[in-house]
């Protein structure tokens, strides 16, 4: 079963996107693997305290992206082969990178300064 225990809501971001992102991060991190069962629409709605239709929307869009399959409308399962994992990984990296670059540009950093910053902090957190 895909766990949502580490899910925490972020204000200002559409909830269905947050649910989708949680699953995608899990897939990339390897905590969610191909064939894992997803909580039902109702259970997840209750768990997160969000509208069932929001969960439904997230599941529907994940299905459209081919990351989950629903059997006879009831149970949903993760559908992520190696190619899908790679694709999601690239997508998340791009999104995160864009976010960081935007932030750094807003702070007025030049390209060179940004590179230096990344070099400086590259090993940060490795020792922990």
């Amino acid at each position: 079963m895909v766990s949502f225990s580490s899910f925490s809501m972020e204000a200002g971001v559409p909830i269905y996107l947050q649910i989708m992102l949680h699953l995608k991060r899990g897939i990339v991190a390897g905590t969610v693997t191909d064939g894992d069962e997803l909580p039902s629409r109702r259970v997840l709605s209750s768990l997160l305290g969000v509208n069932p239709n929001t969960v439904q929307k997230a599941y529907r869009m994940l299905e459209e992206e081919g990351l989950i399959v629903s059997h006879s409308g009831a149970k949903s399962f993760v559908c992520a082969d190696d190619a899908a994992v790679l694709r999601v990984r690239r997508e998340l990296l791009e999104t995160d990178a864009r976010g960081i670059i935007t932030a750094m540009k807003q702070m007025g950093l030049s390209r060179e300064e940004a590179k230096n910053l990344i070099d400086t902090y590259w090993e940060w957190g490795d020792t922990e």
């Binding site: 809501m9 909830i15 109702r42 259970v43 709605s45 209750s46 768990l47 305290g49 969000v50 509208n51 069932p52 239709n53 929001t54």
Partner: peptide
């Protein structure tokens, strides 16, 4: 709220009058 969300069937409609707007804003549609 959690129980409500957990038991409602897709055909059930809830019309909830309340002044606790912030509390319910997360799950109303």
């Amino acid at each position: 709220y959690k129980v409500l969300l957990g038991i409602l069937e897709p055909h059930e409609t809830v019309l909830l009058s309340t002044h606790l707007i912030e509390e319910v804003s997360g799950f109303i549609g």
